[in-house]
Design a protein around this nucleic acid. Structure first.
Lengths: 152, 152
DNA sequence: TCAAATTGCTTGCATGCGCACGCAAACACA
DNA sequence: TGTGTTTGCGTGCGCATGCAAGCAATTTGA
């Protein structure tokens, strides 16, 4: 491994890793300290917030996140204990369950989201010009699984 | 949050997140399935491999990784059980302990590292031209904590 | 010189996670 | 309608992790 990557590759990949781990740690710590939320819980609240009625089926939450169904179920447990969401049986399917954002949860999330965005701007986005941001966006498009490598 | 980010920001930041989580998942799964290693354990082996004598003090390992001292201690436990490393008391300090790479561990790591590099190339590096890789490297420099935001 | 403070590492405990499993509801289909 | 299968969710279990505490070795300082 010491020489398996070229200098160029090391700068591109190693920097990616370093940046990612640094910023994620900051986000985790900030959300936990100021809002009592894990990144996972924040993601769940985000999905609920973006949804029409502020409610989403457990399964849909799991599918959209990186969490398993059981992990999602437990995240909802924690959020429910904190009063941010409530469980609600699905009328149209007796097996199903909704997680529903409470008013308190909505307010709490809005504050957390604002802080989150500020942190991402401060630690990441603000370092680049608009042109560079667009360029980054283009890079990520090409990093997607279905995209083709340069040398096919 | 729905409109807290601009389109431009969303492309740059959201793509970063998506790329990161996708590739890390691939790496984790591959290392686990083919080499029985977690990313954490791989990191520990890497540090040992890069060291002079194939041995590093527990504390130094912890400082370089994202793991706590206790987490490092347990990672060494697992690697020792698998025969990849051995513990060795420090001659110069009776409290200290080295993790030492065994020959088997070295061979195992070399294979894992090769596979790791291949995966990173296939899923990430190969998507970019050398110029773009250099550009990415430059971006990560500016994303470092000590770097200044564009608009100071 | 020797007791107090510090250091290096390990261990008990609590937490979050995924996997496998269980239960109940829904569906398929004869 | 009845039975076998599938689906949606929650729960038991094992594992990895961080924090706080413990233990032994070293360093400090009067």
């Amino acid at each position: 491994m010491p020489d398996l990557f070229t200098k160029l590759e090391r700068a591109a990949w190693g920097g990616f890793i370093a940046t990612q781990s640094r910023i994620f740690r900051l986000i985790e710590d900030d959300l936990r300290a100021r809002f009592g939320l894990s990144h996972t819980e924040f993601e769940v609240l985000l999905r609920l917030y973006l949804s029409e009625q502020g409610r989403v089926r457990v399964q849909d939450l799991a599918a959209r996140s990186l969490l398993s169904t059981s992990g999602t179920s437990r995240a909802i447990d924690r959020l429910a204990r904190a009063g941010h969401v409530e469980r609600q049986g699905a009328e149209e399917d007796g097996r199903g369950a909704y997680a529903v954002l409470t008013e308190a949860g909505r307010a709490h999330f809005e504050q957390a989201a604002e802080a989150h965005v500020a942190l991402v701007r401060r630690e990441f986005l603000s370092r680049f010009t608009p042109e560079e941001l667009a360029q980054l966006g283009g890079f990520w498009e090409r990093a997607r699984p279905d995209a083709q490598p340069r040398t096919a």
